[in-house]
Design a protein around this nucleic acid. Structure first.
Length: 103
DNA sequence: CTAATGACATTTG
DNA sequence: ACAAATGCCATTA
């Protein structure tokens, strides 16, 4: 049984480029409501460049936070063709769904 | 085990 | 629509 954090990191790793997921969605995939802990896990994310934690944003469409600086997160997402307006996600961007990856 | 913290979410004002 | 307050869950001290 992996720790909650590891599960969060694995899910983030599944997020494709040009797509963004919400903390709530990740928590829901883990069958929990700990969106708080999800963000917490990403903050402690030891696999910073390995896991695209910058692709995880708030459910209300806002950026949320970032351990390396919220500004950096915005820049990274911009490179991924994910544009933000007034610190909010552009509506042209679709959220990513983890769905059932289990067999 | 108890208390405090946090990259959130939802409800009120 | 925005700002503040409250609730939530797991991690860490």
């Amino acid at each position: 049984m992996k720790s909650f954090n590891e599960q969060v990191w694995e899910l983030c790793r599944k997020i494709p480029k040009g797509r963004v997921a919400t903390y709530k969605e990740i928590a829901r995939t883990l069958d929990t409501k700990a969106y708080r802990s999800v963000g917490n896990a990403l903050n402690k994310n030891p696999y910073a460049p390995e896991v695209p934690c910058h692709r995880v944003i708030k459910s209300n469409g806002k950026l949320g936070g970032f351990a390396h600086g919220i500004k950096k997160k915005e820049e990274l997402l911009r490179k991924e063709k994910v544009f933000f307006v007034n610190g909010k996600l552009s509506r042209k961007i679709l959220y990513f769904s983890f769905k059932n990856s289990s067999s």
